[in-house]
């Protein structure tokens, strides 16, 4: 059983079907939630938190029904919303402590863990400042701290790097990677930024028009892909290409000494250098290109949602 299960999940809001028959199982350590605007990412998160009742089907988190058992689910979930959401006239410690107490921690424990969470996310020195004096990046971090303070089993991050400068973004990504590495928390990360998902997640759920466009294990997809290599060479490239083909590579030669290769899994760059040295060919430039998450995302968008009502489909890469 996955951490999140969806069984024909349909959610209608304001007379419009926002999520349309989602079926699937999310079991990765860190699951990325991708999709264009209006695809239903935030609605899915809100449904998992019990804010929206499903109009059809069901969703479960930790095996608990997302609507019926929402109080128990929320006890084990830390949620960092996309937009500003805090109590501005409270200082950092008080706010995080308040949220931890609401999550069920006794007052003393909540205070202790509020301090710890704020230090952990890097707000230790600013924890006694009122939140409305924080910068945008600090506000993002205090939201993360409150989501972590009660020790959740599932951390839901909605656009965690929204509005952050490159340094703050990097710090946020590092923190998320550390949390993932620690291993006791599962992550569900919604983001518009493919790079964020690429750097933090091992599984990706792509939504389009309220349906599942793809559900992929990023690492497995990458491993199953072939490696594309572009070379710029000087020397006897015909002989070099024959030798390279002998290694099992597919090879195409272009004018100006340019060669494009598709390498099998067992061949690495060192093998190419060795062949080049044997043939007296200089490799002036080498560019290795693997399928990126962007490719996965674009293919999913081109393929569109599954026609069988949102049934889970692995993208053919």
């Amino acid at each position: 059983m996955g951490i999140i299960d969806m069984n024909g999940l349909e959610v209608r809001l304001g007379g419009r079907t926002v999520l349309n028959g989602l079926t699937g199982e999310l079991k990765g350590q860190a699951v990325g939630l991708l999709g264009p605007n209006g695809a239903g990412k935030s609605t899915l998160i809100n449904t998992l938190l019990g804010f929206h009742p499903p109009s059809k089907g069901s969703a479960s988190v930790f095996g608990l029904d997302a609507h019926r058992d929402r109080a128990r689910i929320r006890e084990g979930v830390g949620y960092m919303p996309e937009n500003d959401s805090f109590i501005g006239n409270m200082n950092g410690v008080r706010f995080v402590r308040y949220m931890a107490e609401l999550a069920g921690l006794p007052a003393g424990e909540a205070l202790e863990r509020a301090h710890e969470a704020l230090f952990y996310v890097g707000l230790g020195e600013a924890r006694y400042r009122k939140i409305n004096t924080y910068s945008l990046g600090m506000k993002q971090l205090v939201k993360l701290a409150q989501a972590l303070a009660h020790g959740p089993k599932l951390l839901i991050l909605d656009e965690p790097t929204n509005g952050l400068d490159p340094m703050a973004r990097q710090r946020m990504i590092q923190t998320i990677q550390e949390i993932r590495k620690e291993g006791s928390i599962r992550l569900l990360i919604s983001s518009h930024l493919l790079r964020d998902i690429d750097e933090t997640c091992d599984e990706v759920l792509i939504l389009k028009d309220g349906r599942i466009a793809a559900l992929s294990n990023i690492e497995e997809e990458r491993r199953s892909n072939r490696n594309f290599m572009e070379l710029e060479t000087v020397g006897a490239i015909e002989q070099f290409s024959v030798k390279v083909r002998g290694l099992g590579c597919e090879c195409a030669i272009y004018p100006g000494g340019r060669i494009k290769l598709v390498m099998p899994e067992q061949i690495v760059a060192r093998d190419l250098y060795r062949v080049a040295a044997d043939e007296g060919v200089q490799i002036r430039r080498m560019h290795l290109r693997r399928d990126s998450l962007e490719d996965i995302f674009l293919r999913a968008m081109e393929n569109g949602p599954a026609t069988d009502g949102g049934q889970l489909t692995n993208v053919d890469l």
Binding site: V77, M99, Q146
Partner: peptide, 9 residues
């Protein structure tokens, strides 16, 4: 603050 407050039990 309501989204954060109400995301708790």
């Amino acid at each position: 603050a309501l989204p954060i407050l109400l995301s708790h039990p």
